[in-house]
Amino acid sequence: MQENTEPGASGPAAAPGAEASVPAGSAPETSVPAARREEPGGARNRVTLRSDLRASVWDGLLALLVTGAVFALLWVRIQDRSSSTATVMPFMADDPEGFWVYFLSQAFGWSALLWAWGTVVLGLLLSGPRPARLPLSAARLERLHRTTSLNTMALIGAHALLFAVELVRHDKDAWYSAAWTAFVEAFVPGGYDSGTGRIALPIGQAALYLAIPLGLLFYVRHRIGPKTWRVLHRFVLVVYVLSVWHTLLYGTNVWYDGWFRTTVWLLQLPIAALFLLRLLRPARRSQRLDSLGAHAGSPALWGVRLLGRAAVAGLVVVLLAVLFTGRDGGRGAPPEDTSSTHQHGE
């Protein structure tokens, strides 16, 4: 991602990213520049992790409600066997009550993906060209960007923890041995050695282990320097890409082509479009293609930026093709033998 340059702009990724905002419960934003609001003399207005945690409570409650709704949807789909999970792991459809923790883990995974999606959209709106009219002010959008980021991390953590709990519940060894095995399989890259999980779980673990430090770095950006923070913040979009990849690769309820899987791709279209707009109309003048040629030694940089814009434009075309065809090159249909060779998936 390109660094933010406008005062108060937040990064376009699923982690806290506002350069300046107002903590929960403070007075409405003013025209005071971000830098001035964060000077030592204005310490009362400085954004802190504690203030954002307080502000994230209502957003967190909404996330729990959405998680409950997703759980109910997954439960209905597994019971009527319309979910791909019933094909990938039919034993779960035969005994859904015995695997309710697994379905709850799935629900938290879906809400984490939705919250990450919302955070990325907010970040792109704040760091790129903004619509003329938005329902919330820039400062409130920045705070929402940070609070949804904090809740995204919590939801990802709950998803992984519940997956580990499910592993413990169905392990026949002693509890301490089962707990250790579950910890290794759920949280140690390479610890899960069954089927698609050998690739998909390390991808999900990478998303978790990158999201937490990259997200929390915002609150110590004064120690590491704003420039260093902005450079690191660009990589948070990688967290979102890894999360989507993990879902498409290992989400048993989107295992095969269908409307459930196509919906995941549909959600990526506005992000790709906003990202392309962000690249075509960057906030910093020096990042615009028509100005790069004026700087010495910039032809290579000009070419890289042009290639990036072309790649994102191509991604938009690919997403449209997937949406129109309903095919993404993945698993097209269930195999004739639907028995599972492993007892756990996503």
Rank of each mutant, 00 (worst) to 15 (best):
M1K: 05
G11S: 03
P12Y: 12
A13S: 06
A15I: 00
P16Q: 05
E19C: 10
A20P: 01
S26Q: 11
A27K: 09
E29C: 14
S31W: 05
A34G: 07
A35T: 02
E39W: 04
G42C: 06
N45H: 03
R46N: 02
R46S: 03
R50P: 00
R54P: 00
S56E: 07
W58S: 01
L62D: 01
T67P: 00
V76H: 07
R77W: 02
I78M: 04
Q79F: 06
S83W: 06
A86Y: 15
T87I: 14
V88Q: 01
F91C: 03
G98N: 09
W100R: 15
A112S: 14
L113T: 12
L114S: 09
T119Y: 14
L126S: 15
S127G: 13
P131D: 11
L134T: 14
L144C: 10
L144I: 05
T147Y: 00
A154H: 02
G157V: 12
A158K: 05
A158G: 02
L161H: 06
L162H: 08
L162C: 12
A164C: 06
D171H: 13
Y176Q: 10
T181C: 03
E185G: 00
P189S: 09
G190Q: 11
S194C: 05
L210R: 10
A211E: 02
P213V: 11
L214A: 08
L217N: 05
L217W: 04
F218S: 06
F218K: 04
Y219G: 09
T228M: 05
L232Q: 14
L248H: 09
L249A: 14
Y250K: 12
G251Q: 14
N253K: 06
N253I: 10
V254E: 07
D257H: 15
L266E: 00
A273L: 15
A273G: 02
L274D: 03
L277R: 14
R285H: 09
Q287C: 03
L289V: 13
L289A: 08
L289H: 08
L289F: 13
D290K: 12
S291E: 11
L292E: 05
G293E: 05
A294D: 08
H295Y: 15
G297I: 13
R305S: 04
R305T: 06
L307S: 08
A311V: 11
G314T: 12
L319M: 04
V322W: 01
L323F: 06
L323V: 09
F324D: 02
T325Q: 05
G326V: 12
G332D: 01
P335N: 05
G345Y: 10
